Amino acid sequence: MSVETTATAAASGANATERFRSDKSAAAEVSTERVNALASRVVKALVDTVMEEKVSYDEYNALKSWLIKVGEDGEWPLFLDVWIEHAVEEVANADREGSKGTIEGPYYVPGSPVLETPATLPMRDDEPGRPLLFQGRVTGVNGEPLAGASVEIWHADDLGFYSQFAPDVPEWNLRGTVIADSEGVYQVNTVQPAPYQIPTDGACGQLIASAGWHAWRPAHLHLKVSAPGYQLITTQLYFTADEHLSDDIASAVKPELVLEPKDKADGTGREVSYDFVLASAA
């Protein structure tokens, strides 16, 4: 068995928490009025649930114990990104023109290696998985090609693990920032990821088991696509025939984001095309 399969929820959670603290915790300040409005709604929703469901002290104490464990396991980024972020993304991009976005998830790492197209993502010599050529074009909503657009891509390996969040995986494995050519065309050689379960040996897994849910996410590519003067789009792309497209635990799948790869004519793997359309930042 590969050593990387010893990755634990606590270790992944700690990494995700540390990444959040270093990259995003210095967010814009929120006004007292807005905090009051949002916090009051959340507390009222919890109180209403207690009253309507007649929550017992045993259930209340089980909740407190679980909330403490979420923090101890460092799984707040995982919990929020799996069960809450999809709604925040829908609100944030409700009026966006162009390509559809979806959640970023907890395993993004900025600063991946910059590669000119056609590019091959950093990977091990014996990287498991079926080779995949992912290609397309980046344009604006009026069809103008976006020369030099940035196509940042990261995804899990064939065992469901992300570099920098599992042991014994090279630092930038299957992560890269690909620069499109003068016509906005990009090509990325990688491997097709597999479906995977979110970590289940920590607090989030405890919730999943107690509620009788499943922990699966469909296979997907993560992307951030940008160009000067245009809005950055954060999205994920999925694959047809995946059994978890309709019941993704993160509720992040949208019909417009499902790919249908084809076998390459030379038999060296699969290929798929997807064009990104960016909205103007003006």
Rank of each mutant, 00 (worst) to 15 (best):
214 H>C: 01
190 T>D: 01
276 F>E: 01
235 T>G: 04
138 V>E: 00
69 K>P: 04
39 A>P: 05
94 A>K: 12
228 P>R: 03
268 T>R: 02
16 A>T: 09
72 E>Y: 12
102 T>D: 04
257 L>Q: 15
188 V>I: 06
197 Q>R: 08
209 A>P: 01
236 Q>A: 09
129 G>N: 06
134 F>R: 06
69 K>W: 05
49 T>V: 11
72 E>N: 14
13 G>E: 02
49 T>H: 10
114 V>A: 10
153 I>M: 14
121 L>I: 12
196 Y>T: 09
20 F>W: 15
251 S>I: 05
194 A>F: 12
155 H>K: 05
83 W>V: 06
160 G>E: 04
114 V>G: 11
244 H>A: 13
121 L>F: 09
2 S>K: 13
112 S>D: 08
251 S>F: 12
5 T>S: 14
3 V>C: 13
142 N>M: 10
208 I>W: 03
103 I>M: 03
91 V>S: 01
178 V>F: 00
200 T>H: 02
232 L>V: 14
5 T>W: 11
68 I>K: 13
15 N>A: 15
218 P>I: 10
228 P>V: 05
177 T>C: 03
122 P>W: 08
272 V>Y: 09
72 E>D: 15
208 I>F: 10
110 P>G: 13
103 I>R: 03
207 L>F: 14
220 H>N: 07
2 S>A: 11
73 D>R: 00
145 P>S: 11
94 A>Y: 04
57 Y>H: 14
54 K>N: 15
44 K>V: 02
185 V>E: 08
21 R>Q: 15
277 V>Y: 08
112 S>R: 07
4 E>V: 15
75 E>Q: 04
137 R>S: 08
73 D>I: 01
199 P>D: 07
255 P>N: 06
80 L>D: 04
219 A>F: 05
123 M>Q: 15
25 S>K: 09
265 A>T: 10
226 S>Q: 04
32 T>G: 07
131 P>C: 07
126 D>C: 09
168 D>M: 12
95 D>M: 07
213 W>D: 10
113 P>F: 14
174 L>I: 05
100 K>V: 07
257 L>A: 09
29 E>K: 08
252 A>N: 14
162 Y>H: 02
86 H>I: 07
103 I>G: 08
21 R>P: 10
157 D>V: 03
18 E>M: 08
39 A>C: 12
75 E>Y: 01
168 D>W: 08
105 G>N: 12
19 R>I: 06
56 S>I: 02
42 V>T: 04
51 M>R: 12
172 W>A: 13
48 D>H: 05
238 Y>I: 01
126 D>I: 11
225 V>Q: 12
171 E>W: 07
272 V>P: 07
15 N>D: 14
190 T>A: 00
223 L>W: 07
73 D>Y: 03
180 A>H: 00
102 T>M: 02
110 P>N: 13
60 Y>W: 14
279 A>G: 06
169 V>N: 11
221 L>N: 03
63 L>N: 12
101 G>N: 00
50 V>G: 06
22 S>C: 12
231 Q>P: 01
167 P>F: 00
238 Y>Q: 01
38 L>K: 11
196 Y>P: 04
202 G>V: 10
